[in-house]
Amino acid sequence: MTITPVYTTAATATGGRDGRSKTHDGSLDVKLGVPVEMGGKGEGNNPEQLFAAGYAACYLGAMKFATTQDKSLAKVPADTTVTAKVGIGPRSDKGFGIKVDIEVTMPGLDKAEVQKIADAGHEICPYSNAIKGNVAVTTSVA
């Protein structure tokens, strides 16, 4: 598979989970902190929060794009929400892994139509494609 990027960004982290992460263009500068549940003080954001925010936004955009490519799909309502819940924990074999639960709400559309749009979004979303086969992702629709 060949990818020709239309946009590239870069960020540099220092200090690991108790450090900082900054984009090279300076538009994002995040203080990082280990969650209390993982033995930290819970001060600052963590990589799982950043992944959840990015995945939710990207996936919603992918669903919108999908409806422009497949005219049989209903348009995504303006008040649509996507919640991505990212969990981290030890893997049975070694190291750590993540899982993702996505909740899609599209007021005014029936559940079957929302499911079609959600499925189409996963086919397009680069986050979904990047983790396919590596991360357990469940999607619920309303």
Rank of each mutant, 00 (worst) to 15 (best):
M1W: 04
T2W: 15
I3A: 05
Y7L: 13
T8D: 05
T9Y: 08
T9I: 14
T12W: 03
A13L: 13
T14D: 04
G15P: 01
G15I: 03
G15Q: 09
R17T: 09
S21R: 13
K22N: 07
T23C: 03
G26K: 07
S27V: 15
L28I: 15
L28G: 09
L28H: 12
D29G: 10
D29Q: 00
K31L: 09
L32C: 06
V34K: 15
V36M: 11
G39D: 01
K41Q: 12
G44W: 11
N45D: 06
N46A: 00
P47D: 02
L50M: 15
L50N: 01
F51E: 11
A53V: 14
G54E: 09
A57R: 12
C58W: 12
L60F: 03
L60A: 06
L60W: 02
A62H: 02
M63A: 10
K64I: 00
F65V: 04
A66M: 10
Q69K: 14
D70P: 03
K71Q: 03
K71M: 09
P77R: 00
P77L: 05
A78H: 07
V82N: 10
A84I: 00
V86E: 01
I88E: 03
G89M: 08
P90F: 14
R91E: 12
R91L: 09
S92A: 15
D93A: 13
K94Q: 12
G95K: 14
G97L: 07
G97E: 13
I98Y: 09
K99Y: 10
K99S: 13
I102A: 08
I102E: 01
E103S: 15
E103L: 10
E103C: 07
V104M: 01
V104I: 11
V104N: 10
V104C: 06
T105I: 15
M106H: 05
L109P: 08
L109Q: 02
K111V: 00
K111H: 12
K111W: 04
K111P: 08
Q115H: 07
Q115S: 06
K116S: 04
I117S: 04
A118F: 07
D119E: 08
A120P: 04
A120R: 01
A120I: 13
G121R: 14
G121A: 10
H122G: 01
H122V: 05
H122I: 09
C125W: 12
S128F: 06
S128L: 11
S128P: 02
A130M: 09
K132F: 04
K132S: 00
N134M: 03
V137P: 02
T139C: 01
S140N: 11
V141A: 14
A142P: 10
A142C: 01
